[in-house]
Design a protein around this nucleic acid. Structure first.
Lengths: 240, 240
DNA sequence: ACAAAAGTGTTCACGGTACACCCATGA
DNA sequence: TCATGGGTGTACCGTGAACACTTTTGT
């Protein structure tokens, strides 16, 4: 027969066993000036002076892992109810010069222009994703991983609407897809694919103040917006 | 101008800030008796007496996160160079009764019959995945998440061959796919799809000792076997 | 001869791609 | 009237799904 430990006993034996810090890093995407942007902060570590890094923080003792990126988002941008998705956990021993820090990466999609986004520090700024070459820590790899995941997901799941205002034209939507995927799309085929998905509602309104023929405006069909608390694990994959 | 901290200073200020334990849990799949199996151990926690759990361990201070599941596999099964894939990190505050433990889940594919697998404890055993109802901790959710990821990946990437002996017939391969996906497949369509992928090499050998017409034997085309160290992040997604 | 599984081709529906013209608006 | 982008349809191709009969071997 096995000797069973109680959780309390195990807790004692584990205490001080090791001390690994756990953080979350957020790849916060937005869409501005026809380009995909990512929110970066100037690194405050001497080792990475002059470089930028993702927004992140240590996970607090009483905080669910999946809550931490919401807190980071709220603290840094003032935004609640953003779209967030866990991507990967990076845990090489030498990834952080301060010591052993393992980080779980999330990406987030926000509408930087039309939500009441408030950047809390002036060393936080938007950067073109395509122009980011080097980041502090392993953050370039994290960015690449998140971008890749975004690209894989974007045609099958209605998530990019988190990057747009409530009303948008098909042209704006197509420009956004092209910015994310980094390729050009055929307009007719794009419209067929999108309308076939039944994601959109025709608002019977037109663009205004455009220097050409105005396009029709659409919004995301109610009930498709995925925001608020993260689903974990299999639920996340099951959803739509 | 910003005041820059050195990493050494940051290390001090973070020390004792919190104490979260980090573990890995392995969903070790195998294929036996025409069924997908998972390796489970009897829980040694009183809270989960009589229940099973996944094989896992705490990540060691000097150990890369992605190394930990290899160590667990080796310690528990004697196997090296197994196929491993990081899936998701689970970090709800209350998921572990011993305290704050965040766990990164991996799945692994092993050939239980034909490799020199040595189970190190007799309370470790194979279970039919389809028959697993309840596990200790949140391990059922972890199992479900990993199974889902396996199912999504299996048609696009040549990974299931890690579950088979080197030589196999198309019928065995199809049975394996059916066990993983939980559905029946049309034989002609299956063969067309598989052969179209150029994953297989015809060995010009036949099955032996079968009580019916023997089928041809195949092996995985050299160079496609993905094993050994994990690629991280974007590299993992880029590969094939 | 029979049982059991191996092996093989065609048809159809669907989704993706390539491609060109007319229309509405503002300047 | 011109420039700019809005809006639309058709033909082709490749992939996946449905579907049945003949062949080979062991008993």
């Amino acid at each position: 027969m096995l000797k069973l430990k109680t959780a309390a006993i195990e807790k004692i034996s584990h205490k001080d066993y090791f001390n690994i810090a756990l953080s979350v890093d957020c790849v916060i995407f937005s869409y501005q000036e026809k380009a995909l942007k990512v929110l970066l902060i100037e690194s405050d570590l001497k080792e990475f002076e002059g470089m930028h890094s993702l927004l992140g923080d240590l996970v607090k003792p009483g905080e669910d892992l999946d809550e931490a990126p919401y807190r980071v988002l709220q603290e840094r941008t003032g935004l609640k109810d953003v779209y967030l998705e866990q991507v990967h956990t990076f845990g090489n021993v030498e990834r952080h010069p301060s010591g052993r820090v393992i980080t779980t990466a999330y990406f987030s999609l926000v509408d930087a222009k039309h939500s009441k986004l408030k950047l809390t520090h002036n060393d936080v700024a938007w950067h073109n994703v395509a122009g980011v070459n080097r980041l502090a820590f392993d953050h370039k790899m994290i960015l690449d991983t998140c971008l890749q995941q975004l690209r894989e997901k974007v045609m099958e799941h209605p998530i990019v609407f988190n990057l747009l205002p409530e009303k948008f034209s098909l042209r704006e939507l197509q420009d956004l897809y092209e910015a994310i995927l980094g390729i050009e799309l055929d307009r007719r085929n794009f419209r067929k694919r999108i309308t076939a998905k039944d994601w959109l509602v025709d608002l019977n309104e037109m663009e205004e103040d455009v220097p050409h023929r105005p396009g029709k405006l659409y919004k995301l069909r109610p009930g498709l917006k995925k925001t608020g608390r993260l689903l974990s694990g299999v639920e996340q994959k099951m959803a739509v």
